[in-house]
Amino acid sequence: MQNHKYKIDDTLPGSNDNHQEQQNYFEYCLLNNYQHTFPLTDKPFAHIADDLHADTEIVINKMKELQDRGLISRIGAVFRPNTINASMLAAMAVPEESIDEVADIVNSYVEVNHNYEREHYFNLWFVLHAVDEEHIHVALDSMESRTGLKTLRLPIIDDFHIDLGFELQWKQ
């Protein structure tokens, strides 16, 4: 991943009417540049502020704002899956007319933390987490008996993701 350098005076041509552009670029740098390298130091936001020639308070406030606007999900550690508990991807083929009803049942389980509708014969895809795999199977058995639908149970056999980062495109 590239580290985009933010400098007030040389990022963009012109200088008077592009304050908004500079703000956008500042946001872009905060969103893009620290996906892998958020500092593990006493004052990480001060470190970022130095890097971007900005004030620490401005960086903190902007990061909070980006979180409030939903553009940042969170700032923190991304843990390897199944480190302190078990997870499983599961899918169901739900008749179109019962999708909301079945989704409500699935979502009522605390083990379920993601649930997506997808365009496919298997149209409901969700991820479950629990202390161990046995708990997950118990939850899935219970869902099957409540909905009358079979679940595909797709645990991770191997994780190939190397996580080189996801370079966001500047300019929408």
Partner: peptide, 12 residues
């Protein structure tokens, strides 16, 4: 490798 990375997690 228990922590993959520490960083900003954008909502793509």
């Amino acid at each position: 490798g228990v922590i993959r990375r520490i960083g900003v997690v954008p909502n793509h």
